Amino acid sequence: MSERQVGRRPIGKAVLIAGPTASGKSALALELAFSAGGVVINADSMQVYRDLRVITARPTRDEEAQVPHRLYGHVDAAVNFSAGAWVSDATKVLDEVRAEGRLPIVIGGTGLYFKALTAGLSVVPPIPAEVREGVRARLERNGVEALHAELARHDPRAAERLNLRDRTRIARALEVIEATGRSLLDWHHEGQPPLLPKGGFRAVFLAPERDELYARIDARFDAMLRAGALEEVEQLAARSLDPLLPAMKAHGVPALIRHLRGELSLEEAATIGRADTRHYAKRQFTWFRHQLPEFEWVKPTEARGWLTAATHGAREPD
């Protein structure tokens, strides 16, 4: 199969394909991109990392050769990549795709990325490295409960909203109040406008039956192990990166690192990885239902029909 050639025509509405992990998004996006002359744009916060091709089930090299794929594997695992950084990258890609007369097809499971596309994103100034390092040092030295107590003294509103064991969000909220003097909640009210205005996109959320989805998640995790996920994680672990970095917390990575250290058997690590992924999928259902009501929920078996209807007339007239 070779890449479809398209003429340079104005493109109308972007197509957004979201859904829980292992719901069939990638196959659907590939089919649409090939038939409609589209570009697949990643909206998965873990698939941006070049170190994590196998363990995050990124598109294969063969799939990437069939149609253009953007924002996959373009970030090093040592980078604390954020939603704001993704928005900046996505802005450039969307402009390029539209200039080429192609259909933008944004696909992924990271709800915050899609919310940034359709509703805008809060803008928090960059956090100085010394502030971030100081907060993380206190976290490692004193523990998450002590850090939460510190946050409660400086920003009680933010502390009240956070789970006592949520190391990452507690550290982030404390970094922001310490660096800017303002609560992260206040920054959330001041942000950038959406990249895709209302009426500028068609959005679908693939919603498989839970039992079927969980079975697919388990099978895919096992397939990733057979495809070299453990070796990939071993190479990542050898870099001795900060365990709080997003790439170090990708589903399956922490448990497999524990296996490599001799703390768990491979089956125990795989069991944890599969369970963490199932729990994440459950949270994805909840998040999209409450935060992005503009997404139309369809079963994967009905998705092709939805796409046919959604993309009919998507190109603006000459």
Rank of each mutant, 00 (worst) to 15 (best):
S240E: 15
A250R: 08
A238G: 13
L264E: 09
L244N: 12
L213D: 05
L245I: 04
D211C: 00
I217E: 00
V253P: 01
Y214H: 06
A238K: 14
H259V: 05
A255N: 08
A223R: 01
R239M: 10
M248Q: 14
S265L: 07
A215R: 09
A255R: 03
E209Q: 10
R226K: 13
M248S: 14
D211S: 13
P208C: 02
E234H: 05
V204C: 10
I257R: 14
I257T: 11
V253Y: 00
L236R: 00
L225N: 02
L206D: 04
A250V: 13
S240A: 14
L266N: 02
Q235P: 02
R226F: 00
Y214L: 08
E209R: 12
L245P: 06
P254V: 01
E231Q: 09
L260Y: 08
E234Q: 12
L260K: 03
L236Q: 02
D218F: 05
V204L: 14
P246Q: 11
G200P: 13
A229M: 06
Y214Q: 09
A250S: 11
E231D: 13
R226N: 10
E267K: 06
R261S: 11
L260R: 03
E212W: 00
L206E: 02
L256K: 04
A207V: 01
V253W: 04
L241V: 14
G228H: 04
E209P: 11
P208Q: 07
G200L: 10
D222K: 12
R202N: 13
A207K: 12
L260P: 03
D242G: 01
M248L: 06
R210Y: 13
A207D: 11
A229I: 02
K249C: 10
D218W: 05
V253L: 00
L256V: 01
L266S: 10
V204Q: 01
H259E: 02
L256Y: 07
E232F: 10
D211Y: 05
P243N: 11
P254E: 07
R261Q: 12
E234G: 12
M224D: 12
H259D: 02
H251T: 09
L260S: 05
P208H: 01
P208F: 03
R258C: 04
S240V: 15
L244D: 03
D218C: 08
V204S: 09
E212I: 03
A237V: 00
K249D: 09
A215E: 12
R261T: 02
F201Q: 08
A227Y: 02
A219M: 08
D211K: 07
M248D: 10
